[in-house]
Design a binder for these strands. Structure first.
Lengths: 332, 332
DNA sequence: TTGTAAGCGTTATCAA
DNA sequence: TTGATAACGCTTACAA
């Protein structure tokens, strides 16, 4: 498939030196208009594209930022990645996305891969503290790392404010008439679940209401919501407002409530989290919270860029607010 | 942030030549066990990782495969990318994913970017024939390109069989008792819509049934399904089976039918497409088709690898079957 | 088994 | 305004 065209080929074709070709292309020193035109013509006709590798051999900077994530099909990952791309667009850096899947979930391998490409910084995008496994490397890493979505001690972190989300959920449900709150949680080991729970229960306490001690932990899915709702209403029949840890659970919860003959929202109000696509057109549209995922990606890039350019690496923590989206499931 | 560690540093620390370091690391020539150990110790203590750029300067191959897509947040894109990652894992190549977003949707720019990184092949991942815009480049491209998801004339294509999907939808609905079929289409300019329509109507004809001439084109979303269902039942009240171009439309269609007082599936059967997450737990679980997205990614990689290694570039077309997932919306 | 030196394609420095 | 040359970090003949 065709020999690779080098700067020498272009130089020969244009009858100039390789140095002139470089400068005609990147304008780092003046080139006469006539020469430039000849060079550009040669570039065009030969289909020459400079080799990134060779260019970056000399200059210390690779111009590449790496992103390490587990699985691109997870909504939170691809939304964040989209934000990262936006934050990078038009700038000097480009993105090298690497998924755990490529490396059999061996993050150490993936990290070394990025390092071998001389990335100038890494955006780390997980919902579990997997970083612990290769802690040693990252702590003393000469490459700045920003953790997006996980509050990772010892790293700069950009995270959504799940706690305030929970707090606002309680506030909102109270305003809609809830007096006997409850929560159906997701997986117990997720920080997002704990934070949402903590925010919710703290506002519940402030408002001098009681909530069940049972947490109804389970998967982040419909079935768990359905079953938990039935258990919950059996255990605490006075419940008139349920905060679900995400929209899948909320959807199941609503269905479970309807199955028991409850009316949503007049008898029981329901709030979810994450603003999944179906939430807007669920049979009872689901009140939810939109995570600032793209904003997190954009902010992560901006912070990383700053760290790279200044060299200062303060382990700061940046919290972005989630946004309440009120829908029918919570208000009459 | 620390000076970059080079092979020279390691060589000095281990008291050997750079050549020995290379060979101790990649085993392309025998190294005594003692020397190897000293080298590896030096590598470890210095945190040395070989520069990918420098390594690839000599060898013609970059070991990189590029992937060009519009938007990673689209399900079909990230599923395919996941397949690509799987196909690549454990092999010699790594993936450079590039999104249109990074380049302000200037595909030409993105293509040149990949070329500058000396990618050995490109996987092109779109649902629209945007490639036409930079047709000239790709036709004479010295880099092999495989189009995944779009049947792109002049390129190797890996595509889902939407036509057979439509065909099977008609077959399935007929088996469920449908005698007066109809279809609610998506955007008229999508090939997927046209193919699904064609497959459906061809089986309808074979089964000697009639279907409306109206196509009910519209967005691939819930609202369109809802409104189109109402129009459709007004125009053709005898309709007892509706094939919707995707699951969003199907969800809206079911809601629209229920709104009119029809029972699904006993009075009207509904089939969707794409197997969205909500389809399994919709209030009436939606019969749908699962696209072989990950498989398409895997196959795309495998074909591209073969083209790269053999150098032969036949413009073949590879069609993968979608899989019917029967649920309640179609059978009583 | 190991070392020396040339070369990959580009850019920076120096000289013209 | 331009050209020659060294250098980037690594691999690989070739030599020892």
């Amino acid at each position: 498939m065709g020999e690779p065209v080098t700067i020498m080929d272009v130089a020969k074709a244009a009858g100039v030196s390789p140095a002139t070709v470089t400068h005609a292309l990147n304008g780092k020193r003046p080139v006469s208009e006539m020469t430039r035109k000849r060079v550009l013509a040669a570039v065009e006709s030969l289909g020459y594209v400079p080799s990134w590798n060779a260019s970056r051999m000399k200059s210390r900077s690779s111009g590449i930022i790496g992103c390490l994530a587990a699985d691109i099909t997870e909504t939170f990952v691809n939304q964040i990645v989209r934000g990262i791309e936006q934050g990078l667009s038009g700038g000097q850096h480009s993105l090298f996305f690497v998924s755990g899947i490529e490396f059999g979930n061996d993050l150490k391998k993936a990290y070394h891969f990025l390092k071998s490409h001389k990335v100038e910084g890494i955006l780390f995008c997980h919902h579990l503290p997997i970083w612990k496994e290769f802690n040693l490397d990252t702590q003393n890493s000469d490459i700045p790392i920003v953790s997006v979505n996980m509050d990772t001690p010892g790293m700069i972190s950009v995270i959504p404010d799940n706690t305030t989300g929970g707090y606002q959920a309680a506030e909102h449900l109270y305003g809609c008439g809830m007096r006997h709150p409850a929560m159906i949680c997701g997986p117990e080991d997720r920080l997002s679940v704990q934070d949402r729970l903590q925010g919710f229960s703290s506002r519940v306490t402030e408002l001098q209401m009681q909530m069940p001690t049972l947490r109804y932990y389970g998967n982040y899915d419909y079935d768990h919501g359905f079953e938990a709702a039935i258990e919950l209403m059996r255990d605490y029949p006075e419940t008139d407002g349920i905060f679900c840890a995400n929209d899948y659970i909320a959807a199941g919860c609503i269905a479970g409530l309807q199955n028991l003959g409850y009316e949503v929202p007049s008898q029981v109000r329901v709030v979810g989290f994450d603003n999944r696509d179906f939430s807007s057109f669920w049979n009872i549209p689901i009140t939810t919270f939109e995570l600032p995922l793209q904003e997190m990606g954009i902010l992560g890039v901006s912070i990383l860029k700053q760290v790279i350019s200044t060299g200062s690496y303060a382990k700061t923590k940046h919290v972005l607010q989630s946004k309440l989206i009120p829908r029918q499931s919570s208000r009459g």
